[in-house]
Design a protein around this nucleic acid. Structure first.
Lengths: 195, 195
DNA sequence: GTCTATACATCGATAGAC
DNA sequence: GTCTATCGATGTATAGAC
C-alpha cells in the first residue's frame, strides 16, 4: 500500500468525519489493511492528519499569491483568482470541507501564525484595499468583504449534499463547476464594484 | 442543576468540539457534575444533542419565514432579513457554528426532509426569484445566489477566532455586530441588485 | 509491511447506594 | 439528583511473529 494512497484515503476520511470522528481503525479499514499496519506508516494520528491535510491546503495559499500578484488590472486579477479557487476546490472535493473544519476546530493550520487561513485572508484584504486605492473597486470595509468572499467560495463546496440539492446533480461535476465559476465570478465582481 | 442550564452547556460544547469531540464526560465536567448524573437527565447522547441543538436552530427557520413574508417591498424585506439573521447569530455565539457543523456532518437536522437548512435555502431562493420576477432584483441564478448569501451570513460568525483576527476585538461584541450588520446588508443588497 | 495480540485510556451507558 | 463502581466496546498506540 503506497504512502500517497494512504494519505488520500485519510484525507477523505478526515473531510467526511472530522478529526475526532475519523478513527485510525476506520481509516485502516477503508485502506483494506489493519490498524497496526497504518500505525507502521504513520506513528501518530496527529502526524497523519497534518501530512494528509497539509498537502490539500498548501496549494490554496499559493493560488492566492499567484493570482493576486501579476501586472494585470485589479478586476482581471480578481476574476482570475475566483476562477482558480473555484477550479481547485471543484477538482479536490475534500479541500473546502477540510478547510472549514480547520476553521471550526481551530486546527493546527490555523493556530500557527504563518499558515494558510490567516495569511490568505490578509492577502485578500490587502488586495481589495489596493484595488480600492487604485479606484477600480468601490470603497468599502475590506475586512468584512474579504471574509464574505472567502465564505462564499468555501461554503458552496463544503456543503456538498446541501448545495447539490439546490442545483441538480453533484457539485463536483464539470458542468456544475463551470456554472459555479460563472456565478461566483459575477457575484464577487458585483460585490467589489457595486454600491 | 436545572435542565436548561445543562442544555446550554451541552450546546456550547457541541459547538466548540463537534458531536464526536464533545463527550458526555466532558459536558458533565463543564457542568460541575459527574457523567452518570448527566445521563440521569438525558438517557442518550444523541437525545441531548438533538434537544440542545434543535433549540438553537429552530428560531432560524422562523426568522426567515417572518422576514421573507410581509407586505413590504422585496428590498426592504431583504434588508430586514439580513439584520434579523445577523442579530440572532450575533446574540447566540454557538448558533452559526452548530449550523455549519450540521451541514458538514449531514446531521439529524439536515437528513430530515422538513428541517431548517434545506427549507431555509429553498425559502431564500424562492424569495430571490420572486424579487427578480417583480423587477426589484437583477435577473441571476437564484440557486447560486441563495447559497452565497447563506454562506456569507454563517461563515463570519462560525469562524469566530479567524474573523475576530481580521476585525479588532470579538465578533460578538455589540459594536462589531452592528458593524457586521451594516456591512452584510450592504453586500447582500449589492449582490441582488447589481450586475 | 502486514499481521495477531495486547496495553491502557476513554467512550456511551447502567446498577445501585445515599 | 448525584454519587461510586462497573460493563462492554472502542480509542490511540506498542510488542513481536512472519
Amino acid at each position: 500500500m503506497p504512502r500517497a494512497r494512504l494519505l488520500a484515503i485519510a484525507r477523505q476520511a478526515f473531510a467526511e468525519l472530522g478529526y475526532s470522528g475519523a478513527s485510525m481503525s476506520a481509516i485502516a479499514t477503508r485502506a483494506g489493511i489493519r490498524k497496526p499496519s497504518l500505525f507502521h506508516h504513520f506513528p501518530t494520528k496527529e502526524g497523519l492528519y497534518v501530512e494528509a491535510v497539509g498537502a490539500a491546503l498548501a496549494p490554496m495559499g499559493a493560488l492566492v499569491e499567484l493570482a493576486a500578484g501579476g501586472d494585470h488590472g485589479f478586476l482581471v486579477r480578481l476574476d482570475r483568482l475566483g476562477e482558480l479557487v473555484t477550479d481547485y476546490l471543484g477538482a479536490h472535493p475534500e479541500a473546502a470541507r477540510l478547510l472549514v473544519r480547520e476553521v471550526l476546530d481551530s486546527g493546527p493550520f490555523l493556530s500557527a501564525p504563518s499558515q494558510p487561513a490567516g495569511v490568505v485572508l490578509d492577502a485578500v484584504r490587502a488586495f481589495l484595499e489596493a484595488g480600492m486605492d487604485a479606484g477600480e473597486f468601490a470603497r468599502a470595509d475590506a475586512r468584512h468583504l474579504a471574509l464574505s468572499i472567502v465564505a462564499l467560495h468555501l461554503f458552496y463546496f463544503a456543503a456538498d449534499p446541501l448545495s447539490g440539492a439546490q442545483i441538480e446533480g453533484s457539485v463536483f461535476d464539470e458542468e456544475q463547476i463551470a456554472s459555479r465559476r460563472a456565478a461566483v465570478v459575477g457575484q464577487v465582481r458585483t460585490l467589489v464594484t457595486g454600491s
